[in-house]
């Protein structure tokens, strides 16, 4: 526990490395590209985990938020910002994409006050479809042909910084009283209301923050690929993010990092197998659901991701014998 300062040092070293590796060409550009996708996937997975894992809702429209972020940030860098300043204004564009996505998140949070479970899943599914068809019909961003003209502004250090910022903010959120409120909504929403938790406010904050980071990821994604089209953000993309969440583990930031890493790397390694990877990944998921239904790291957390005051509480509890069975009825 006294080694906390090491985290800061390691984070700084990581940043230096993320700058040095591409600068000195230590790694193959292909591997750099995969690393950037990996970082983007971590952001997507951790942000979806907030709603699906911590709060226990089932949102399947995450790609829709990502699309909003991707398009808004691309329009900002291509059409609105001066060409020379684009490099410096890139963070503004990414944040702008995130804010636009969080506005969409605010809209999606409204039906979540009244519906949950399957019904909320259908609402979010519809949201994803609406975003996609809306984009296909907006000629000024290319319609179904897609949108291009972005410079490759996303670099490894930027991805690194955004991953750290995302994990940091989400960590502070899930260990706050809002985070505890989200967990309580997951466990029993009625009891949560009866405890005096402002469930609406908790839900809004979860959806808005989750959507914000999906938008950020979308902005980064658009500026790696330099080309986006609406079909990239369809239900398959949302499913991919869901797989990463459930692979890594519900309600765990460590699990999100793990899930996104395993999935991204496995999909790259299996690339040569062609169609077979579409068999292997689902198979992996089936096995996971059979043997570890909460995901690899579900409901657990790396100690370095837990704030100190909560870490004290996490010390191992002595195993206590279960009380004898209480007969039902009285």
């Amino acid at each position: 526990m006294k080694m906390r300062w090491m985290i800061g040092v390691l984070l700084l070293a990581g940043f230096a490395l993320s700058w040095a590796v591409p600068h000195f060409g230590w790694l193959d550009p292909y591997i750099l590209l995969v690393l950037m996708y990996l970082g983007i996937n971590i952001i997507l997975t951790a942000s979806l985990n907030l709603v699906n894992g911590y709060m226990g809702e089932f949102s399947v429209g995450h790609a829709g938020f990502m699309a909003v972020g991707a398009y808004v940030s691309s329009v900002l860098t291509v059409n609105l910002f001066p060409v020379t300043g684009a490099v410096f204004l890139f963070p503004v564009a990414v944040v702008g994409g995130g804010l636009a996505a969080s506005l969409a998140g605010l809209l999606v949070s409204i039906p979540s006050f009244r519906t949950r479970g399957d019904y909320l899943a259908i609402v979010t599914l519809a949201f994803g479809m609406i975003v996609k068809s809306a984009l296909e019909n907006i000629e000024s961003v290319g319609g179904p042909r897609g949108f291009m003209g972005m410079e490759q502004l996303t670099t490894l250090p930027w991805v690194y910084v955004w991953v750290v910022v995302t994990i940091w903010i989400l960590r502070n959120l899930v260990f706050s009283k809002y985070g505890r409120g989200m967990a309580a909504i997951r466990e029993d929403e009625v009891a949560c209301d009866l405890c005096g938790v402002h469930t609406r406010r908790v839900k809004i904050s979860a959806f808005v923050v989750s959507a914000f980071f999906a938008g950020v990821a979308g902005g980064l994604y658009a500026h790696v690929l330099q080309f986006i089209n609406p079909r990239m953000f369809d239900i398959l993309k949302s499913t991919e993010i869901l797989i990463m969440v459930y692979l890594g583990g519900m309600a765990s930031l460590g699990g999100s990092i793990l899930g996104a890493s395993i999935y991204t790397i496995a999909m790259e390694l299996l690339r040569e197998q062609g169609a077979w990877r579409m068999v292997l990944m689902p198979l992996l998921l089936i096995l996971l659901m059979l043997f570890r239904p909460r995901g690899l790291f579900g409901l657990r957390e790396f100690p370095w991701l837990v704030p100190l005051r909560d870490l004290v509480l996490l010390r191992p509890v002595k195993k206590q014998k279960e009380k004898t069975h209480v007969p039902a009825g009285s």
Binding site: R180, L194, V197
Partner: peptide, 25 residues
């Protein structure tokens, strides 16, 4: 304060967290 039917315990949260939730406001 309402103690609901079936108790409404947050099963995955610790006893301490259960108590803390009641002071959310």
């Amino acid at each position: 304060a309402h103690v609901p039917e079936g108790r409404g315990i947050f099963g995955d949260l610790t006893v301490r967290e259960n108590l803390r939730l009641a002071t959310w406001i």
